[in-house]
Simulated assay, not measured.
Amino acid sequence: MASEQMPPVVTLHEEYGCGAREIGERVAASLGVEYVGRAMKSETIDEIAGDADEGGFVERFLRSFTPIPSHDANIAWALEAHADHEVADQNNRYLADLAQDGAVIHGRAGAHVLADRPATLHVKLIAPLSTRITRAATEAGITPERARHRQAREDRVRTDFCRRLYRWDPRENDRFDLVVNTASFTPEQAADLIVTTYRLHFPV
C-alpha cells in the first residue's frame, strides 16, 4: 500500500509542560484519527515513585508490571532483561495496532518504534523551562513548586524509560521530522503547523 493511502500517524514527544495533549487532540481531530495519550501520566509517576529518587523510578515502574521474584543476582538479571523485552514488545504491538487505523500518539517511544512506518510524522515539542513550569501548573491545577518538581523527575524518567527499553535517547533530534517551540505558538497554531507539515510531507 502506498504511503499516501495509509491512515495518518503523528507521534508526539514532549518536554514536560509543552501542552502536547491539547495540541495532539487538535491534530487528531483535523486528521480524523484517534488521539492516544501517553502511557505514564504524571499522577501515575507520583504514585509509583513515592520517595524514590529519579534513578530508581524506571525500575519500580517496570517491576509494577513485571515483578522480579528472585533474590539470586544472576537469575534476577536474566529475568529483568526478559521483563524489559516483554514490556517493549507489548508496547511495539500496541503501537502497530494503533497505526493500522491511524492515530496521534503521545509518548510511548513512538518516534523510535514507528520510525520506519510510511505516512508517519514524528514531532518533538519543546519550550523554555519557565514557560513549561507555568503551563503545567495551570493545566494540572498545582503550584509552580510542584510542577517544577514534576518537571525535574518526569523529563529524567521518561528519557530513562526510552533508553532502557530501546537504547534510544529522545533528547537527540535525529528521529524527529519537526521540532516545535510551543512558547512561540498558541495550541491552535502549533496544531495547524503540524497538520500542514503532515499534509505537505504526505500529500494525498
Rank of each mutant, 00 (worst) to 15 (best):
M6E: 09
V9T: 07
E15T: 11
G17F: 11
G17M: 06
R26N: 02
G37E: 13
R38K: 07
K41C: 01
K41T: 04
S42P: 12
E43Y: 14
I45Y: 12
D53V: 00
D53W: 04
V58G: 15
R60S: 06
S64C: 11
F65R: 03
F65I: 01
I68Q: 06
P69E: 13
H71N: 12
D72G: 04
A73G: 00
A78C: 05
H82Y: 14
E86K: 03
V87E: 09
V87I: 13
L95A: 03
A96H: 02
D97Q: 01
A99H: 09
A103W: 08
G107V: 05
H112T: 02
A115M: 02
R117S: 03
L121S: 11
L125N: 00
P128Q: 12
P128E: 09
L129E: 15
A136E: 05
A137N: 05
R146E: 14
H149V: 10
A152N: 03
R153I: 15
R153E: 06
E154S: 09
Y166S: 03
R167E: 13
W168M: 00
W168V: 01
R171H: 07
E172K: 11
N181L: 09
T186M: 05
P187R: 08
I194M: 00
I194T: 08
I194H: 05
R199Q: 12
P203F: 01
